[in-house]
Amino acid sequence: MADASLNRSGSLLRFAALSLLGLAAETLLFHLLLKVMQGPLLTRAVSLVAILGIMLAMLRRIDFTTGGRLSVGRAGIVAIVLIAAILNYGLYATLIMVLPSLQPLAAMVFASASTLCFAIFGYIRFAFRE
């Protein structure tokens, strides 16, 4: 029982590390694109799609198994990541529209941190259920 819990914790840490890596890479990409592209909404969409593609490619290479079987399943992980990306863009767009004085990078960090919590909660919800 403790071994299965340890495996699940390791899987959760791999998912969290992948998510944090994606957040860091997207922050850098968004910051670079913000200087070149027109408008913060289009810039955010482009950076989010680019990082989403990279993260989905990385998902194929990372082992999320617990005890030889997938704890959530690839489809579940992809669903969590896609829902988080949609939520992320929606929250970002809302922040930019409602608070126009808010810096786009600050709105991106807030939206990404919020959806990171959502994604980790979603992963825990699926991975730790019996």
Rank of each mutant, 00 (worst) to 15 (best):
L52K: 05
L34H: 11
L48M: 06
T115D: 07
A119S: 15
S9W: 13
L105C: 04
A107W: 05
A17E: 10
A16F: 10
E130D: 11
I62R: 09
V36N: 06
I77P: 02
L23H: 10
A75C: 03
I62N: 03
G90I: 06
P40C: 03
G67F: 07
G76Q: 07
L18N: 09
F110E: 01
R44W: 06
R69C: 04
A17Q: 09
A127D: 03
R74E: 10
D3Q: 11
A57M: 11
L34I: 00
I54E: 05
I86M: 14
I54P: 02
A85D: 11
L105M: 14
I62D: 08
R61C: 11
T43W: 02
V81Y: 13
L33F: 02
L102K: 06
G10D: 06
M97W: 15
I124L: 12
T27H: 12
I96Y: 10
R129V: 13
L48T: 08
S47C: 04
L32H: 01
R125E: 03
L99H: 14
N7T: 10
A119V: 05
V46P: 01
I86Q: 11
Q38F: 14
G73P: 03
A111L: 05
L18A: 12
L48D: 01
L52E: 06
A57L: 15
R61M: 13
L21P: 00
F30P: 00
R61G: 15
S19N: 14
R129C: 07
L6G: 04
G122P: 06
A84W: 08
A113S: 13
A75H: 13
A75E: 15
G10I: 06
S114Q: 01
P104A: 07
A57C: 08
A45H: 09
F64H: 08
L29H: 00
L48F: 00
P104R: 11
F128E: 02
L33S: 02
M108S: 05
F64N: 04
A119Q: 08
R125A: 10
M37D: 03
T66D: 13
F118M: 00
S112C: 02
P40Q: 12
I96F: 13
R129N: 04
E26I: 00
I86D: 03
Y123Q: 04
A2T: 13
F118L: 01
A24S: 14
A113E: 04
G22D: 03
A79S: 09
A45Y: 10
R44L: 02
A79Q: 08
F15M: 05
R14K: 15
S9E: 12
V49P: 02
F64V: 00
G10K: 07
I54T: 13
F128R: 14
A93V: 10
I62V: 14
A84H: 11
R14I: 05
L18I: 07
R125Q: 05
F110V: 15
A4S: 13
